[in-house]
Structure formats: structure tokens, C-alpha cells
Design a protein around this nucleic acid. Structure first.
Length: 112
RNA sequence: CAGGUAUGACAGGUGAUCGCGGCUGCAGACGCCGAAAGGCAGCAGGUGAGGAAAGUCCGGGCUUCACAGGGCAGGAUGCCGGAUAACGUCCGGUGGAGGCGACUCCAAGGCCAGUGCAACAGAAAUAAACCGCCGGGGGAUGCCCCGGUAAGGGUGGAAAGGCAGUGUAAGAGACUACCGCCCUGCUGGUAACAGCAGGGGCACAUGUAAACCCCAUCCGAAGCAAGACCGGAUAGAAGCUGUGUGGCGGCCCGUCACGCUUCAGGUUGGUCGCUUGAGCACAGCGGCGACGCUGUGCCUAGAUAGAUGAUUGUCCAACGACAUAACCCGGCUUAUCGUCCUGCUUAACAC
């Protein structure tokens, strides 16, 4: 992705969980923490409770794709973690995308 | 035709746009990141999950522990022969069970080595007389006593081989024929076993060994977070001192190495292992078959928070099931929307 990379280390996840702001809707939870590298780092978490490996992979792909398609609308310089909730299981791309953008607007990091 | 049965194949196709992981080339260049080891951005080309990738139930390779040793304990397997690297898998047989049949199923060694267990019911459960039957004695009606009897009744998963006859007071392998069982011999078969002949009257007498156990065969352990290498950082304090600690799954030996234990703190980045392999395809030969041999051709994911997706057009049997490689193979088991090929079979029902 052009302006973003993925959040990998467990330690970074812990920091965002502890210090970041969180907002949620029916399908997703979003944690947000400003960083100082001028780029966004995206982490996606889908717990085993949601489903088996195939279900979890599909959800991460849908979330990543939704973010990628509207990447230029997000403000830069944040660590973002998206958590899929159990109700997101089996939902289509459009539903997931809608939920993600809704959260972005709530966090005021999404600009039309 | 329809049903059944066995085996095999496929697992949405295709176009456009956007996007992702390896690989090769440009390129041992230039640039960038990093303390270093090392790594990365760009363009082009090509490539990129399954029949079960799953469960992790077996077996093997590989790696390290000492190239892995002795004994005990423990575990696994269990008709015979073969295949294989190996197996608890597969193939071909034997025996048993089911089905009209094609065919399917099987934890299929040993309770005349020993020990244990067998609820309830039943008179009695490894031991037998409740009813009945028969004989004798007593009493007078519907019974009592003694003895014989396992053919009959009843209980049970199982009651001293079955059935028919002879026999008898009534009965009984007490005796006889047939069947079964056990023993011996012969014939066929590599063998499991089958067939035939002769003998034993049949035993300390039932079942259970997914009860202990016995017999035979096999098994060292831990796992790719295995392990090898490169680079960086670091801080100690207290205690114990040998019949000590660890390598080595449990115990005893044996053997090798070494100070050890507790508390506190810090670092935890990179490369390799990582895909050429008991590999795949085709042809020929050998074998009933599993499979083997030979020849020719091919290279077909390799991530490390983890790549196959999204949008849309179109086609089909039309919301396309189950389910995502993580060191690699051989199996087993379980999940699954459906579609199709081929062999074989058909009693009853329908035509």
C-alpha cells in the first residue's frame, strides 16, 4: 500500500490497546493511536471465536481491501487496529467497507 | 429403464480493472534502511493451496541429544502369504457373519499355565434334585420319609455335545448310526487351512483374554519454536559445597561433561534449514494384485503475523459444499453442494 504498512509486533499491539482510543460499531472495533513516523500502520485482528481459518482469512482480506481502496482519504500518522467482531462473519465486502468508513468518520481520521 | 453395488475423475469456467507473496532478468550497477549481520524500494516476465491443505491417530525421512549401550518396567501389534523406507496401511488368500446377487463386514493367537469376574432370575452358576418321573416303606385320600434319575418343565447369555434309536423300574454316551468335538495319520497347499481315513465315548467339563495374564513380533527420546551459523547487548546479589548437578522420557547400571541453586535485571535482530523429492507425466516389460524395473520428458507455492482477494460483465446443472500449505513424505479417520465415466448385479415391487 502506498501510504501504509502493516503493524506486526505484539508489543506494538499492546501499546495501541493500552493508550489508543477505541470506537466500535456492530461489525468492527477500531483502535487509534498517533505515531511519529508520518505513515499509517494497520493491524487486523480476528479472534478464533469468529470462525475457522478460512473465515478469518476472508475477513482480514475484506478489511485490508476496504482500507486499501480508500487509503488516500485517511489522515496519515496513526497506528490503527481493526478487530472483527463475531457478527462480521459471512458479511459481504460492501457491508464491511461501509462499517470501516463509518468508524473512520467517527474517529475523524477519514476525510471525504 | 429403474434400483443396488464397486471403483475412479472433477471441486465453478471465462473477460476487464485494482491489489498481494516467492522466483528470474535488468543487476555482484546506482540509490535507500541498519550499529552490524544483512535487507529493501522500481520495471518486465513468469508463477502461486487441498481432496481432504483439517483431526494430529499411526509409520518413515531429517535434526539434535553420546551413531544410541545392558537389564527391568512400559507401549504397540495379533489367521496366513506378499508389497513397502516403514506401518496399526495396502494387495491376494483362509475361516466366520450378512445379503437373491454383485459384494460388504471382522481387535480372527492362547481360558485342558495360573488367577479373577459372571448382576437379576433360578432349587442349583461350575455347583446341582424346585417341579416332574421311577422304586421301596409308612399313612389314608390329594400326603410324609428313604433312595434312584439330568429324558421333560421352569429361570438364564450360558444348566455336564445335538438328534434318533437300543436299553431301563425310571433314566443316563451306558450302548449304536449320523453330525459336532478331541487325537493320530495320509493327501493337496509356501502357509492359514481344506479333504479323506482311523481312533477316543467326550475328560478338573459354560462364558469372558477391547479382565489380569501367557505366547510371538516390533519399539531409545524429543521435535523445524528441531537445529546450524552470523551480529549485537548485558549487572549483579545471596546461599550451598559434594553420597552434588546435568546430558539420558521411568527405575537400576553404565558412561560423558561440569561447580551448582535461588532472587533480581537486560537482550531476543538476521541468514540458512525451506523445497529435486521413497517427486510427477507418458510408454514398455514382469506380477492375479498391492507394486517393481527400464526408458524418455518435466521442475510444479515456500510465507514467517503469515501471500490467491475485491469490483464488475458473461456462461452453467445458478446465493457453487467442506475447508487455507507452515520441514517433507506414506497412510488412516472425519467434514462435504453437487456433476460425470466405467465394471458388475437384480430375489421381490413397477414396466
Amino acid at each position: 500500500m502506498k501510504y501504509s504498512e502493516s503493524l506486526k509486533k505484539n508489543k506494538d499491539f499492546q501499546i495501541v490497546y493500552r493508550k489508543g482510543k477505541s470506537l466500535a460499531n456492530h461489525y468492527l472495533v477500531m483502535y487509534l493511536l498517533p505515531n511519529d513516523i508520518g505513515r499509517n500502520r494497520l493491524g487486523i485482528s480476528v479472534s478464533r471465536k469468529v470462525g475457522n481459518s478460512v473465515v478469518r482469512h476472508r475477513l482480514t482480506r475484506l478489511i485490508r481491501e476496504s482500507y486499501r481502496m480508500s487509503e488516500e482519504h485517511f489522515r496519515r500518522g496513526f497506528d490503527i487496529i481493526i478487530i472483527a467482531r463475531t457478527s462480521a462473519k459471512g458479511k459481504s465486502y460492501h457491508e464491511i467497507e461501509h462499517a470501516l468508513l463509518h468508524l473512520g468518520k467517527l474517529h475523524k481520521c477519514y476525510i471525504d
